[in-house]
Amino acid sequence: MEEKLSREEILHVANLARIKLTEEEIEKYRVQLKKLLNDVEKINEVEGYDNDILIAPWESNTTLREDSEGSMLDPKAVVENAPRHSGNYISVPVVIGESEGA
């Protein structure tokens, strides 16, 4: 029998990624994601490395930017590209609940 993830597992990751799946997709991804997760499992077989990490193969450290102002966008251009807007604002369906962030 083909290995697959449970329906709940797929729905959980789909929600993390904010992606709505059709029934057909759910069934397909149950098999496909399992295959990929089996692949990444192989990382646990690797040995002999040290604890230093490589975030990205940066060739230089960060050069800080001077605190001086540059050009900005016309609010009209900002809202024109947005699918929903109201005056100078970009709008979205009403949001209930507070930000998780700062």
Partner: peptide, 19 residues
């Protein structure tokens, strides 16, 4: 995101989110 992304992209985003 469900309709805007294709199959491969959705698959990779989901796996990446999981990881």
């Amino acid at each position: 995101r469900g309709k805007g992304f294709g199959e491969e992209v959705k698959r990779r985003i989901m796996v990446g989110s999981y990881l």
